[in-house]
């Protein structure tokens, strides 16, 4: 019994100290952000590898998620004669939930894991250490640009995802299922609110972008400098980011729409 309690205590303390270290890490990384004003090229290069290279998966997933939503939604709505509301259904699901959340999950798998592995390997091969010895602060040179690039890329990716999802639904609904495109857009425009739906989705994806990038760079930086350590850290990034995104999504949804 005492063993059990001791184990709970130990793991609680462990998580707390991890959280503490992660916060301290974040603080140092944020302190490195102002110096990036002088080096926009660093951020640009990271937006390329985080954002641009994630485009394909976002474009494909967004279009197909929208198309499938339209198919499924149509089959349900047509029973109630409400197939004209298909646009509303798809747009609200994408803007409020699926856009930010699915983008963040894909981001964790595509960009987050790559970030962790890259930084973890830089640590393992002593590149971070040697940078430090060259009087170049890795927090500023390596961590801060990646954090910022993730934060910038996520809302852009989510917007592209949602927009293409709606276009996918349009092609399925209006193109294949033969709905009239007047009510499709008209009802959508009447029910979708710019601030409540579009902006809240953007706020969600900003939060997710921040958290996902933070977890990814922290796990990389904190990785045990061995091959197993890096692989464990990469797995942790994907798992923790997914859990954090889903948990935060619940909290944010409750705050925004509750």
């Amino acid at each position: 019994m005492t063993d059990f309690l001791a184990r709970i205590g130990r793991s609680t303390l462990g998580s707390l100290s991890r959280l503490g270290r992660a916060s301290l890490f974040l603080w140092h990384a944020l302190a490195g952000l102002p110096s990036l004003v002088l080096r926009p090229g660093l951020v640009l290069a990271q937006i390329y590898s985080i954002g641009v290279l994630s485009l394909i998966i976002i474009v494909v997933s967004g279009t197909f998620v929208g198309a499938v939503l339209a198919l499924q939604g149509y089959n349900t709505l047509v029973n109630f004669g409400a197939q004209d509301s298909l646009g509303v259904l798809v747009a609200l699901s994408l803007l409020r939930e699926l856009g930010p959340v699915v983008t963040a999950l894909l981001f964790a798998g595509r960009a987050g894991s790559a970030l962790t592995a890259e930084i973890g390997l830089m640590k393992t091969t002593e590149q971070l250490s040697s940078m430090e010895m060259m009087a170049v602060d890795p927090m500023r040179r390596v961590i801060a640009p990646r954090l910022l690039a993730g934060f910038i890329s996520m809302p852009l990716l989510a917007a592209i995802f949602s927009f293409l999802g709606i276009m996918g639904a349009y092609f399925v609904g209006v193109g294949a299922l033969g709905l009239d495109d007047g009510p499709f857009w008209g009802q959508m425009q009447a029910s979708v609110d710019f601030r409540d739906d579009v902006m809240n989705g953007v706020i969600k994806s900003l939060v997710f972008g921040f958290v996902a990038s933070w977890i990814a760079v922290y796990e990389g930086y904190d990785a045990e400098p061995t091959s197993e350590g890096v692989s464990r850290a990469t797995t942790r990034t994907v798992v923790h980011t997914s859990l954090a995104v889903l948990g935060l999504d619940f909290v944010l949804t409750a705050l925004m729409f509750g």
């Binding site: 809302p155 917007a159 927009f163 709606i166 857009w185 959508m188 425009q189 979708v192 710019f194 579009v198």
Partner: peptide
């Protein structure tokens, strides 16, 4: 995409 969402999908 963001502008598209704002103009075409919502009512701003």
């Amino acid at each position: 995409a963001f502008l598209g969402l704002a103009m075409q999908v919502s009512n701003i």
